[in-house]
Design a protein around this nucleic acid. Sequence first.
DNA 1: AAGTGGTCTAGACCACTTG
DNA 2: AAGTGGTCTAGACCACTTG
Lengths: 236, 236
Amino acid sequence: MTQVKIAKYSVIKQYICQKIESGQWPEHSKVPSENELTEQFSVSRMTARRALQELTEQGLLVRSQGSGTFVATFKSQSSLLEIRNIADEIHERGHEYHAQQLDLKSVEVNEEMAILLSLKAGDKAFFSSVLHFENDTPIQLEQRFVNPKLVAEYLQQDFTEITPHEYLSSEAPLTEATHEVEAILANVDICNLLNITESAPCLQVKRRTWSRQGVVSLAILTSPGNKYRLGSHLVF
Amino acid sequence: MTQVKIAKYSVIKQYICQKIESGQWPEHSKVPSENELTEQFSVSRMTARRALQELTEQGLLVRSQGSGTFVATFKSQSSLLEIRNIADEIHERGHEYHAQQLDLKSVEVNEEMAILLSLKAGDKAFFSSVLHFENDTPIQLEQRFVNPKLVAEYLQQDFTEITPHEYLSSEAPLTEATHEVEAILANVDICNLLNITESAPCLQVKRRTWSRQGVVSLAILTSPGNKYRLGSHLVF
DNA sequence: AAGTGGTCTAGACCACTTG
DNA sequence: AAGTGGTCTAGACCACTTG
């Protein structure tokens, strides 16, 4: 049996993630200092520091010279610059992911949708509706129209096992995407799904994706404004 | 005159950035190894390593154990989500632009703001509040905290004549920025300024900007959700 | 075999915040 | 004054890729 070597800083990161995830270390609570971790895990300060530093970069912790390191306020964040698999993002935050498949069918596209998907009005497209959960909290409703010419077996998938993004990436690799980001009030049905009141603002991303062969899908991603945000880091 | 201490790893980062930017080190070219930088800059390997590591996280470099560190391929990443001058955007839509300057003063920064601007709590920072109009409709409230060490004459400007972004671009050219995008409900004062009801969702962008010398400003941009959206076009 | 990056140690000095 | 995080050193052993 092969023994996989786990880096020490990684063990410490997992320890801290687990404490935060389980709620033992709530938001704003102080986490052990570099010196305390050094002693507790019998590592050098540089190693303890690396664990704290990486979690800070990931947004789980906030550090302040002289006063200490604290658990950050929890808000899910995803990037505007790359298209990530939401399940991966959630796992990276040290949280549980699961999905609920609300719908998966063939629909006739209206004129607008036809244009967006490069189809003719009245053509069939595939449609999926999936609700993504972070630790049992609904975090994003994904409604997606898919070009059936490029992804013929879309309806045969189980999107509680694999995310639509993951599946599409394997079938029709992403070459291009556009985003439109808006703040909206969602309708009653969506609010109920997301477990928010009707007056709660939502962040809505409309994303069109292309692969070499053409338009693959149009996704409408709706998230509660108080639980989700988008981020980007640009270097010029 | 106070001498600002520049960290050694930061000097090395700037050196590498400059080489890439100027085209002396093109895409895929090999950059100096940790050991070479160690010698060249008379630092320990850990310090040279930190410079390479951070640039790798920023996506400028790619590392491969055993073979070396290389200049990454630029996806259109910098041009994807570029930072535009709102006055230009509005003019390009064929509309009239004007601005109202609501506030322009020096403020004491609290702890959070101090961290974000690389200042000490209690230090002074400059603050501006400007309301941007598109054809007499308020389209964005810009509240901005500015590092006074880098932009000494900020308070002497007239932001109905030049946007803060335009002015800062000329004084401290942009090298880096981060964004956080959220859907929020704004407070009464902001709703009144934006001429919307209190239940109207707003798109809020928090943008931190850097120039070579460090953090330049933190801008909080709030726009009515029904009148403003963000877009991006990614090519992979 | 020589060079690369990945991890790690046991120290050090510093600036900063807190009691 | 004691504790915190920020930077830095001069070593070490390792896994990996290359000539």
